[in-house]
C-alpha cells in the first residue's frame, strides 16, 4: 500500500511547451491536495504524470510504502485511482455491468461494489444503460469505483463538477473517510473541496 508520494524536481512538457519545472512535493498518508491553476496550467498533465501515463521531462515520481520505496509499476497497478473527464463507462452497457467491471479490474469485489452503490444512492439506477443517466448520476457511478475498490491514492480531475450540493456534501464525507483510513487525495479543482486540504497552485512557467 502506498503511504507517501514524492515528486522530485518534476518538469512536464506537452509538445513544445514546458508546462512547469522544478516541482517538488511530498504527500503523506491522510493528506489531501487541491490543485488549482488556470486552464492549460498542467493540472491534468500532472495527475497523468503521477499515474505514469505521461513520462516526465525531468525529475521523477516516487511512491513510498510501509517498507521503503515501492516499484512504480506495482504502486500504480494496485494503488492508484485516476478519475478524469472520461470515466471509461461504456454508454451501451448497463450501469451495474460497467461498474462491476471497473471495480473488479481495479481489485474490488462484487460485495464491495454493492456496498458502494448503497453509499452513493445508486441502487435504483443500476439496471439502466449508462447513456440514460444524467451527468450527475453518471459521475456518481464513476465515483463508486473509488469507494468500492480500496486504493490508497486518488487522483481526481474536477470530481465534483456535475454533482449537486447534496451529493457534494456526501462525496466530501467519503473523501474524509478515505483520508481517515490513511488514504491520499490529489484533486484538480476550480471550486474548493469540502475537506481540509493543502493547496498547490500551478502557474504558467
Amino acid at each position: 500500500m502506498i503511504t507517501g508520494l514524492h515528486l522530485e524536481n518534476l518538469a512536464i512538457r506537452r509538445g513544445e511547451r514546458l508546462l512547469f519545472a522544478g516541482l517538488c512535493l511530498d504527500l503523506g498518508a491522510s493528506e489531501a491536495l487541491a490543485l488549482t491553476g488556470a486552464n492549460g496550467a498542467g493540472k491534468t498533465s500532472l495527475l497523468r504524470a503521477i499515474a505514469g501515463l505521461i513520462a516526465p521531462h525531468e525529475g521523477c515520481v516516487r511512491f513510498a510504502g510501509a517498507k521503503g520505496d515501492l516499484e512504480p509499476e506495482d504502486a500504480r497497478s494496485s494503488g492508484i485511482h485516476l478519475l478524469g473527464h472520461q470515466d471509461g463507462l461504456k454508454s451501451a452497457g448497463t450501469a451495474w455491468d460497467e461498474l462491476l467491471f471497473q471495480v473488479r479490474w481495479t481489485g474490488g469485489s462484487e460485495a464491495s461494489a454493492r456496498a458502494a452503490c448503497r453509499l452513493l444512492d445508486l441502487e435504483r439506477l443500476l439496471g439502466l444503460e449508462v447513456r440514460k443517466l444524467s451527468a450527475g448520476q453518471r459521475r456518481r457511478l464513476a465515483l463508486a469505483r473509488l469507494v468500492a475498490s480500496p486504493r490508497a491514492l486518488w487522483l481526481l480531475d474536477e470530481p465534483m463538477a456535475p454533482l449537486d450540493s447534496e451529493r457534494r456534501h456526501l462525496f466530501g464525507h467519503l473523501m474524509g473517510e478515505h483520508l481517515a483510513a490513511g488514504g491520499m487525495i490529489i484533486a484538480a479543482v476550480h471550486d474548493p473541496l469540502p475537506i481540509p486540504v493543502r493547496r498547490l497552485d500551478l502557474v504558467f512557467s
Binding site: L53, S77, H81, L82, G84, G88, K90, W105, T106
Partner: peptide, 16 residues
C-alpha cells in the same frame, strides 16, 4: 477505449 477513458483505467489495472 481510448476515447472514453477505458484505456486509462486498463493502464492502471493489475496487468501490464
Amino acid at each position: 477505449d481510448f476515447e472514453d477513458g477505458t484505456l486509462d483505467l486498463l493502464a492502471l489495472g493489475p496487468a501490464p
